[in-house]
């Protein structure tokens, strides 16, 4: 049974990205975005919590959401590499959000019909959240891509920085035995959304960027370790404590 590991991949994706987005809180380019970004982070963290609980239950070893989130090292984290990329500037953060949401929206749409009731339940809520994230991030990518010279340059450089992490989104991970959607099958939906936004933003998909992979096997970049060190420091300093 590897379903719990497949659910764990999903949970890690959501927590790590939610954590990254939450790093913006209080530092956004305008006050309105200081409110928008926590909304997105809260959506992601909320989904992660349900998924961790579910993964823990499926595993059956008594690990709850906090055990799974706070007491695993980077080699045990199985998120995709895209979500752990540092925030960079606002262009990179918005593009990362768009890439992820454009993948997760069709994913959850498929998962609405999952034979696993918890997954189907999460999908019902998350599919709407991801549709909004696509809109929010997509509108920003369009504005930055087709704004000033500086913003267009930053946006295009965000594409160069992140494009190499998009291939992994569609790779198979732990075998979910048909309970979770087939990632590779979502490529068409993702291409269509990204294509539409890029066309309006005047952005190009770069050619010949080598695709990175490894997150699902716990092979990460160096940034994730720092993220986890920060996130887990307090919980690990007081093992067994209740907060």
């Amino acid at each position: 049974m590897a379903l719990w590991e497949a659910v764990l991949e999903l949970a890690d994706d959501h927590l790590v990205l939610g954590h990254r987005v939450s790093e913006w809180c209080g530092h956004a380019p305008m006050l309105e975005e200081d409110l928008a970004m926590p909304n997105m982070a809260l959506d992601l963290i909320g989904t992660a919590r349900t998924l961790y609980d579910h993964a823990g239950a499926l595993e059956g070893a008594g690990r709850d959401e906090n055990r799974l989130a706070y007491f695993r090292d980077e080699r045990a984290y199985v998120n995709c590499l895209l979500v752990e990329r540092p925030n960079g500037d606002f262009a990179q953060t918005m593009l990362r959000q768009l890439y992820f949401a454009a993948f997760m929206e069709p994913y959850w749409r498929q998962a609405l019909h999952s034979s696993d009731a918890v997954i189907a339940g999460v999908a019902g809520k998350a599919v709407k959240e991801m549709a909004y994230h696509i809109r929010h991030a997509g509108e920003w990518v369009i504005r930055l891509g087709d704004g000033t010279e500086e913003s267009a340059r930053r946006m295009q450089s965000a594409v160069r920085a992140l494009h190499g992490y998009t291939g992994e989104l569609f790779e198979a991970g732990a075998d979910a035995g048909g309970v979770l959607p087939d990632r590779a099958a979502l490529r068409g939906d993702w291409d269509r959304v990204i294509g539409e936004v890029f066309a309006e933003a005047g952005l190009r998909q770069p050619d010949g960027v080598p695709m990175q992979s490894g997150g699902r096997r716990g092979l990460h970049g160096e940034g994730l370790g720092h993220l986890l060190a920060e996130m887990q420091s307090l919980a690990r300093a007081h093992p067994g404590a209740v907060w």
Binding site: E32, A36, R143
Partner: peptide, 16 residues
């Protein structure tokens, strides 16, 4: 709220 255009204004209103 403050927003550059009508699309962003609706989004900001929703988020705020």
């Amino acid at each position: 709220i403050h927003a550059a255009d009508e699309v962003m204004a609706v989004q900001a209103a929703r988020d705020v």
